[in-house]
């Protein structure tokens, strides 16, 4: 009887220990991962756009999400930014559930969609003022100038968006995405349509955002060059399935025989398709 009680007590203690451990690991998880998704799927009828995606992104990382056109990258970003509800699976962004706490998630993220053109009839400043207010900043003036200074775009503030170059518009796009100081920034093909100079400038901005402001970046791209120059971790998506996930340095080591990242990418895609 005594033995029974003792063992019961012990098991209770162990259970308590497990719960504490679980809680502390949860705490650790929520503090170290800005993005944490499990078995996330999106179905359109019978077509599976994203299939059981499980992924974690650590705070301070620049995560490159690679894949050919139609691989499901944008659908994934749409789910993570709460624009789309997943068909199944779960996930948190900045510690908030992407379905149950969508409004909280949106407070913590910045997002720049692909090829967004903004409000043409308004100036860059007016666009930023509008989006800042919608992001919850009631007096955005000083914040706007700070962000424009950070992006070296002060001189364009009072120009109409329609008169700005694509590269400059992307910078204004990033400005609207970071004006409320988000924890994580989602960029969907940010360099799409930019000339080489524009690409380099934007790359520098992304790196500075990460190093100086400590913003975690989740970037969709199919430009492998970008990944080598900016990202710390890469994931490869193929037909909605995550087929590869590792740090860039490990990837380079693992595929040391390949001449370029492009070869590595093709190697990964081909090996999975075979």
């Amino acid at each position: 009887m005594q033995t029974d009680l003792l063992s019961e007590n012990m098991s209770e203690k162990e259970e308590m220990k497990d719960i504490t451990k679980e809680a502390s690991s949860k705490e650790e998880t929520s503090s170290s991962f800005v993005l944490d998704i499990h078995d996330l799927s999106k179905m359109y009828g019978v077509f599976s756009a994203v299939n059981n995606l499980t992924l974690q992104v650590k705070k301070g990382e620049i995560f490159g999400f690679l894949g050919h056109n139609g691989a499901g990258k944008t659908t994934t970003i749409n789910m993570l930014t709460t624009l789309l509800e997943p068909s199944s699976g779960s996930g948190t962004v900045a510690g908030y559930d992407i379905v149950e706490e969508a409004l909280e998630v949106r407070r913590k993220i910045g997002y720049l969609p692909e090829n967004v053109r903004f409000y043409d009839s308004m100036t860059a400043y007016e666009n930023l003022d509008y989006f800042a207010r919608l992001s919850g900043i009631s007096k955005p003036d000083s914040r706007i100038w700070d962000v424009l200074d950070f992006l070296d775009a002060r001189t364009y503030a009072h120009k109409k968006i329609s008169t700005l170059s694509k590269g400059m518009r992307q910078r204004i796009g990033i400005a609207q995405a970071i004006i409320h100081e988000p924890e994580i920034l989602f960029l969907d093909e940010p360099t799409s349509g930019l000339d080489p100079f524009g690409v380099k400038q934007l790359r520098d901005v992304i790196l500075r955002l990460n190093s100086e402001k400590g913003i975690t970046i989740f970037m969709n791209t199919h430009l492998l060059q970008e990944v080598t120059k900016t990202c710390s971790t890469i994931g490869v998506l193929n037909h909605g399935n995550l087929i590869y996930l590792d740090s860039l340095s490990n990837t380079m080591k693992r595929f040391r025989d390949e001449k370029s990242l492009e070869d590595i990418y093709l190697n990964i895609e081909n090996s999975k398709e075979e």
Binding site: L83, R106, Y111, P113
Partner: peptide
């Protein structure tokens, strides 16, 4: 929709 600002609007903390 055409300028894709609807996507931006819906990604902001508004209902």
């Amino acid at each position: 929709k055409n300028t894709r600002t609807m996507k931006l609007l819906l990604s902001k903390p508004i209902t």
